[in-house]
Amino acid sequence: MVTKKNIVVIVLLAALAGVLWWFLFPSDARQVRSQLKETAKLVSVPTGESLLARATRANNVAGNFSPAPELILDRSEIGRPRLITSREEIRQYFLGAHSQLVGTRVELLDITVAVDTKTETAHAELTAKVTHAGQSEVWAWPVRVEAVKVEGEWLVSRVETFEVIER
């Protein structure tokens, strides 16, 4: 006989199973989001980081990108437009800019991800919000990102800033 108590237990178990499934088997879109958020966390450099930690961080940042990525950063806040086309360039750029990045916090907001399961590629659009410790100024960059699945892991293959207000 199915009692009220049994129904509650079944519903709770089903909900628990759903949560577990969601947690253990993230969708491709969720994997891309978490990869992007991890990259943002890596480029948010805390103060007082050692040289070794700095180099490790640079390697980890570069490792989140595909072997031949394309980064097109065209924002007045970072000077001239920049084109970066390899992991090594990412590593060098990050190490070079490290002192300016100390105390910087990068948050990725409003991320929308579209995954093409046939080609194992993903397109994302997001807003990168950059703040600096002790400063009230906020930089907000709309960004388009492409990612590709390599051996089961999503890697960022293209990053391009764009502008919603154009001259």
Binding site: L109, D110, T112, E125, T127, W141, P142, V143, V164, I165
Partner: peptide, 13 residues
Amino acid sequence: GIALAGRSVMYMK
């Protein structure tokens, strides 16, 4: 308010 990729951050113009 001008949305960027979404409305979490907007330009004000």
